Structure formats: structure tokens, C-alpha cells
Simulated assay, not measured.
Amino acid sequence: MSGEARRAELAANLERVRERVAAACAAAGRKPEEITIVAVTKQYPASDVRLLAELGIRDIGENRDQEAAPKAAECRDLDLTWHFVGQLQTNKARSVARYADVVHSVDRMRLVTELGRRVRAAERTVTCLIQVNLDPDSEQGVLGPRGGADPGDVPALAEAVEAEEGLALGGVMAVAPRQGDPREAFDRLKTVAEELQARYPHATVISAGMSGDLEAAIERGATHLRIGTALLGNRRLIVG
């Protein structure tokens, strides 16, 4: 596909996503301006990131450091906010700390400590979202690991993030369980978010909702949507 054709495809997809966001906001009594679309560009090349930037997308999400690091470097001339949205191993914290502006998947104390250490070494500031596990079945391995802290562990993790120089507490993130009504899951996340904001008023981010459930997420208070397939199409493997 030519660059011009790909740009037209992305523009049409983005228009449809924005229409969905606008409709969901209208139904929920919210404004579209309250919603940040994070384009999840995993398995897509840096050229797509550039096209999305031309179309007005400033927030880019990646879930694998091996792919994200070179892509962020290739696009360093663009004024973008890079979001790391995948599960983060502590041995990748050093690399992620060099380019990520927001890490959505902070879910354990060891990661908080290591990420803080690596961010200070890089002389940067990174916003952290605490990933909340909304899927009780994942604890028994019924549906496989999804990542995330138990809701009861969120206050202690938030305190740890606040105590780490170089880390800023931004709010919470969650992935809806594969089964069940996503609205019920996002209701639980909203409760956790409200409790967190009561103590840390600046922690206003609720990262929830993807291509298939963005309407439910907006209805339940999401501020950031992680959109991949609806924007970029079905995943196709790229080299790198």
C-alpha cells in the first residue's frame, strides 16, 4: 500500500473512532475533549506513527520495549507523548525510562523502585498509572495472566510512586476481563480511581477502553482510550 493510500485509510479509521467517541460522550453527558486517544501502534511501522501525527494524534502507545525503543528513537523529531501500555519486566525498566512519558502498567513494588532508579539515571520524569487487575479468574490462571495489582494494593503502590523522585502518580489503568460485561469491570475501576483521587487529587487519569469496549469505558469515566485495531486495522507482523 502506498503512503498516500495508507494515510487515507488511517484518516478514515480515525474519523470513525472520533465519531464513536463523540456519540459515547453525548450519551454519557461528557465532552469529547475530556478523552485522549492513545494510538497503540504495536506491530506497525514508524511510518504509521508519522501519518497519525500528521492527522493530529499526539499520544502513541506501545507494549513491547523491543519494538517501542527503536520506533520512539526514529520518531524523536515529532512532538509526541509515548505511552508504554504492556506488562513491564523490571529488566526492561532502564530502556523504557529513556523514552516513555507514561507507563500504564505499574503493578508491583519492585517495578516502582526499579523504574524510579532508572528514571533518575536518565534525568527524566515519567508519569505512572497503577494497573488494576479487574479479572479474578486470572489469579487462578483460568484465563491466563493479565497483569495488574489487586485493588486493595493500590493505595500502597500509589504511596510508593509518590515517594520515588522522578515518578509522578497519574492515575489508574485496567483491561476489562475477556468475559462478562465490561461496564461492571469499569465500574470497579472507577471506584478505585475515585478512592485514589480522594487522597491524590492530581491522579485524574483513568486509562480504560480499547477498540471493542470504548463506549463502556467512556460511560464509566475513562479519560484515556488505548485504541489499536479500530485505528490501524487488524495486526500484521512487521520486522523488528
Rank of each mutant, 00 (worst) to 15 (best):
V112E: 02
I130G: 01
A185F: 05
H224N: 09
M1R: 07
Q197G: 06
T127E: 06
D181Q: 12
Q179H: 10
R6C: 05
I35F: 06
G116E: 08
R235Q: 03
E194N: 13
L10I: 12
V85A: 05
D107T: 13
F84T: 01
K190P: 01
D79W: 12
E74D: 15
R183H: 08
E164A: 12
E165I: 12
G180D: 08
V85T: 09
V85W: 04
E195Y: 14
R120Q: 11
A217V: 13
D150V: 11
G171A: 00
A156P: 04
A222Y: 02
I37G: 09
L167V: 13
A203K: 01
V21M: 03
R16M: 04
E165T: 08
C25I: 14
G147N: 04
A8D: 03
L55Y: 08
G221A: 00
A198Y: 02
F186W: 07
Q179A: 05
L88I: 07
E19W: 10
Y44L: 04
M1V: 05
V119D: 00
N91I: 09
A121R: 15
R108N: 12
L231D: 07
R146E: 08
Y200M: 03
A26I: 07
A216P: 13
R94I: 08
I37T: 08
D65R: 12
A163Q: 10
G240P: 14
H224L: 07
D150T: 10
I37F: 11
C128M: 03
A11H: 13
A193C: 02
T204R: 12
V40M: 04
A122Q: 08
V119P: 03
G233K: 02
I206S: 01
A156C: 05
R235A: 07
R235H: 04
V96H: 06
A28Q: 07
E219Q: 08
Y200K: 00
D77H: 15
A230D: 15
P182G: 14
S47C: 04
S95G: 10
G233C: 07
A24W: 05
P70A: 14
G209L: 11
R235I: 00
E184T: 10
A27F: 00
R108C: 11
G171I: 01
L167P: 01
T41W: 10
A222L: 03
N133E: 14
G170N: 10
R6I: 06
G86S: 12
G228W: 09
E33C: 11
N234W: 10
Q140C: 13
Y200C: 03
S47P: 01
A46H: 04
M1S: 06
E219N: 04
G116R: 06
D153P: 09
R146T: 06
